[in-house]
Nucleic acid binder design. Structure first.
Length: 630
DNA sequence: TCAATCGAGCTTTAGACAGCATGTC
DNA sequence: CTAAAGCTCGATTGA
């Protein structure tokens, strides 16, 4: 099947043909045969890089009205925004937390790219462009099975169909065990394929040789101990680099990514990129990164500032870097393909020991191997030793990836969504809520009455928190409405209200008070509190005890609170003019961690200020002032 | 006396979405 | 519950 046979305009066809897209890939042809261009719903469970984006584009271009493309990451939103913007005669809008076209503008676009939370928020707040949608594409739908954000995605898809009845839904999924259930849920056809534009070989390294799944073997000359995973990784990376390719090495922790990068540095040389990185900041991490990059290798993890991450990703795509040593950030993020992917660590610390990584996650790392048009093939190598060779083989080479299952029954998730359903007038009774939830992936797999018990506790909790009232039906209070609008979880809203009430009886309410409240909230990420700084943090907490809404000794989670105090302290020093360099040094956090905490605090302080405006207490906590100083 | 080596014990451990109003280039 | 690598600091060993 050829592009020119598709029901597209002449200019659009020219555009695709000019970029070498002429003949459809088999999965794309299958999608067309399944009716994507005729408004049919579809679930496509195909590997990354097999042309999913093109299928999505086809669906949105042929739909009879505007399209929405939902992504899980902001970086992905930007990437898609750019690719769609290149299509002639198509106006594209973007809507994410950090980058937003104005609401009025969104409705005028042919295509809008947005994160799932942003779409959820738009639906909650009754944005009218939602109801005009003719086509919705969901990228990475398998994430409905993820614990934190999965429920948001499934509820969003459920409510979206109420606002825009009859929309065409095109869901793109990684290869999972039960794509048929996803298709069933969405009332969609299913296209499944393992086809890739570049061949991918997966293998297991052990004792000096890699055994691949195409039954080939390859000897690797390791400079050190062939049973040492790091020595082997070094050799595997060096091999492809010497061969003119690029490599990606996945390790377990940030520190290990950095040390490995330092060891590998020297396989290439990228002084210009190093210069570019050095110019970004004077942070210790930035310097180390620049030093590695000087030698052609970068490290990549969430402790990096986003500017650093972007610089590294771009340089690698432009082939100005030979290798990246990364934590799993890179597995699911923007498109950064390499000829060879080396997975040194397959286990991860979970809080109670080491656990094998999910098969799906390892497959996604492997899927980064092979650049279309640039590499003759892609190779993914799992590094092990003779002891675990067979286990790695069974678990990741032969094994089918996991099932996707709803996590909506989680009490926290349900509470959040029950509140939003009631607050946005989707339902005014217990039955009404169940009716909305009926379109959910959870309900599709389980009879709705199994939700009943959890639903009752969720409602009871929300009544207790004064966010809804349960008299002759359900209705949101002003507080509940505000909490839902501000997009904070009910628990966060409750913590803010509690903080305000305590503050009303305090004599010393300061900027630190505002930060403590907001940092002690479940929506704030915690900051690791090391044993060595604990004593110092304790002294700080004591010295400022009068400014805190939590009395030491009255908390049942003192450790957790002390963690919040650390975050508040960092942010406080930031608002008082401390430099990022010093904070990073003093509190041993990554520059990227600082960045993300500041961003979050900004959001939560805004939410707290909005909530303070409707709660009837005498406290005057300077949320707004702190926010301005951030 | 000093330095290199070894080892017990301790520390640390991935990631990342969201509001809103106003101001600036 | 089910861990493992790096680091610190002190003890041992060797010159």
């Amino acid at each position: 099947m050829r592009v020119r046979d598709l029901p597209l305009s002449r200019t659009t066809i020219d555009h695709f043909e000019s970029r070498g897209i002429d003949e459809l890939y088999p999965p794309q042809a299958a999608a067309v045969e399944a009716g994507v261009t005729e408004g049919r719903r579809l679930v496509a469970a195909v590997p990354t890089a097999s042309g999913k984006t093109f299928v999505a584009t086809l669906a949105m271009l042929t739909a009879d009205g505007p399209g929405l493309y939902i992504v899980p990451l902001r970086a992905l939103a930007r990437e898609k925004y750019e690719t769609f913007s290149e299509v002639p005669d198509v106006s594209v809008g973007i809507s994410t937390g950090d980058f937003d076209s104005s609401a009025a503008e969104l409705g005028d676009n042919d295509i809008v790219v947005a994160t799932s939370e942003k779409v959820d928020s738009a639906i909650r707040n009754g944005a009218d462009w939602i109801s005009d949608l003719a086509c919705v594409v969901v990228d990475e739908v398998h994430l409905v099975g993820s614990e934190g954000r999965g429920p948001t995605l499934e509820v969003t898809l459920a409510t979206l169909q109420r606002r825009a009845p009859g929309v065409q839904i095109v869901a793109l999924s990684a290869t999972v065990a039960n794509p048929d259930e996803l298709a069933d849920w969405l009332d969609a056809g299913l296209v499944q394929s393992t086809w890739r534009p570049v061949d991918l070989r997966t293998g297991v390294y052990a004792g000096g040789a890699v055994g691949f799944d195409d039954d080939t073997q390859r000897q690797v000359s390791v400079a050190g101990d062939p049973d040492d995973a790091t020595d082997a990784t070094e050799a595997l990376v060096a091999e492809t680099v010497d061969d003119g390719g690029q490599a990606l090495a996945f390790v377990r922790s940030r520190r290990e990514a950095e040390t490995l990068a330092e060891r590998l540095a020297g396989v290439g040389s990228s002084p210009e990129v190093a210069e570019e990185i050095r110019d970004l900041d004077g942070t210790e991490t930035g310097r180390r990164l620049a030093d590695c990059v000087e030698g052609g290798v970068a490290f990549h993890h969430a402790g990096l500032r986003s500017a650093h991450r972007i610089a590294v990703e771009r340089a690698f795509r432009d082939r100005r870097l030979r290798a990246i040593c990364a934590t799993p950030t890179l597995a699911a993020g923007v498109n950064v393909p390499a000829r060879r992917v080396v997975i040194r660590d397959q286990k991860r610390y979970t809080g109670s020991g080491m656990e094998w990584l999910p098969t799906l996650e390892v497959h996604q790392m492997c899927g980064r191997a092979g650049r279309p048009h640039l590499d003759p093939y892609g190779e993914a190598v799992l590094v092990g030793d003779p002891t675990i060779r067979d286990e790695l083989w069974e678990r990741y080479v032969e094994a089918e990836p996991e099932r996707v299952d709803s996590k909506l029954a989680d009490p926290n998730a349900l509470r959040t969504h029950v509140l939003s359903i009631v607050a946005s007038d989707f339902a005014a009774s217990r039955e009404g809520v169940l009716d909305v939830l009926d379109a959910t992936f959870f309900a599709h797999g389980t009879p709705t009455d199994e939700l009943s018990g959890v639903l009752d506790t969720a409602i009871a909790d929300l009544v207790e928190m004064e966010m809804i009232v349960d008299e002759n039906g359900l209705a949101a209070t002003d507080l509940g409405t505000q909490v839902s609008r501000q997009y904070v979880t009910p628990a966060t809203g409750a913590r803010i209200v509690d903080g305000l009430r305590t503050a009303a009886g305090m004599t010393e309410v300061t900027g630190l008070t505002a930060l403590e409240i907001v940092c002690d909230t479940p929506d704030m990420q915690d900051t690791y509190l090391g044993n060595r700084e604990r004593a110092d943090m304790y002294r700080f907490a004591q010295a400022h005890a009068d400014e805190f809404t939590t009395r030491m000794g009255e908390t049942d989670d003192f450790e957790g609170w002390l963690t919040a105090v650390k975050t508040a302290r960092i942010l406080h020093e930031w608002t008082e003019g401390a430099s990022a360099e010093d904070l990073v040094e003093q509190f041993r956090i990554g520059p990227g961690d600082l960045e993300s905490r500041i961003e979050r605090a900004e959001w939560l302080l805004g939410a707290a200020d909005a909530i303070a405006g409707i709660v009837d207490v005498a406290a005057d906590v300077p949320f707004r002032d702190r926010r301005a100083r951030l």
